[in-house]
């Protein structure tokens, strides 16, 4: 029973990683066709760096996702502090509002925002081009905010209320108490919310596809329009590099966590 379960799990992990292997192998292929491996080459990597068009698009994606997740993190944390202290009925309403973009399908969010921007831009302001960098940024901040709030709220709820009271008894102003006590306590929630928002933003295709204009395009949107034509193989090289980068980052985070846990248990046993 246990062994069959383990074999099944291994098979499913293989299933999850097969397409990535296909793409990584394709990045070392001299031919253009993903299905036929001709011979080994590093040329695609050289091409990726010679022609900067793809890197520029990656840069665009990074600009949007860094800005959007940064704004959403600050805005969302402030909002979470407020929502936490609202009266229960208002709090429930605020959380329902927060959940709307989470439950709505991406395509509906994208379509509705794009219709809003076109409606306001073209009909009310008379612009010819109503979808710009700014509309893209607004859309990204909007779908990032719930991730921050849903990560920060539980930390606020877990926090011992007497901690801030103690800080204020000891002479802190409410602002000092926030920066010295509350912020420390909810930091893990803020960080995980920010990371989630950033990755969602970086990877988003559907919403960006509907709200981005012609003058500012992110990488996934451009990949989508590429995939209607024969694909340039250097895109596989970029995929491979990004894959390695994310893998290294994740392993590093993992090691830090495991190391931290070990240290914590050690200090706890030492304390006893």
């Amino acid at each position: 029973m246990k062994r069959t379960n383990r074999i099944l799990t291994t098979l499913i992990f293989i299933f999850l990683y097969i397409p990535m292997v296909v793409l990584i192998v394709a990045s070392f292929n001299t031919g253009k066709d993903i299905t036929q491996f001709e011979s080994f080459t590093f040329q695609q990597y050289a091409r990726l760096f010679q022609d900067s068009s793809l890197l520029e698009l990656l840069g665009n994606s990074l600009i949007v996702s860094v800005l959007a997740s940064f704004c959403a993190t600050i805005f969302g944390t402030v909002a979470a502090l407020g929502i936490h202290n609202l009266n229960p009925r208002m709090r429930k309403a605020a959380m329902t509002l927060t959940n709307i973009p989470m439950t709505n399908p991406d395509i509906v969010t994208g379509v509705s925002l794009s219709l809003l921007f076109v409606f306001v831009g073209t009909r009310m302001l008379g612009q010819r081009n109503s979808l710009t960098f700014w509309t893209l940024l607004i859309a990204h901040i909007t779908f990032n905010l719930p991730y921050v709030i849903l990560n920060v709220m539980p930390k606020l709820k877990q926090m011992d209320k007497s901690l801030t009271d103690a800080a204020m008894d000891l002479g802190c102003t409410p602002v000092q108490a926030f920066f010295r006590v509350t912020l420390h306590e909810i930091m893990p929630g803020i960080v995980s919310g920010a990371i989630m928002a950033f990755t969602m933003s970086l990877d988003d295709f559907v919403i960006s596809y509907f709200v981005s204009g012609l003058d500012f395009v992110t990488l996934p949107v451009e990949i989508y329009s590429y995939t209607k034509k024969p694909l340039q193989p250097k895109i596989y090289a970029m995929f491979t590099l990004l894959f390695l980068l994310i893998l290294v980052l994740m392993i590093a985070m993992n090691l830090i966590q495991v190391y931290g846990d070990r240290k914590k248990t050690q200090s706890r046993t030492a304390g006893i």
Partner: peptide, 18 residues
């Protein structure tokens, strides 16, 4: 982490690999 990792990679390209 291994389960999370595919979610971070471009789903367009992964579908194209299929």
């Amino acid at each position: 982490m291994l389960v999370m990792l595919p979610m971070c990679m471009s789903f367009l390209l992964r579908t194209l690999a299929w």
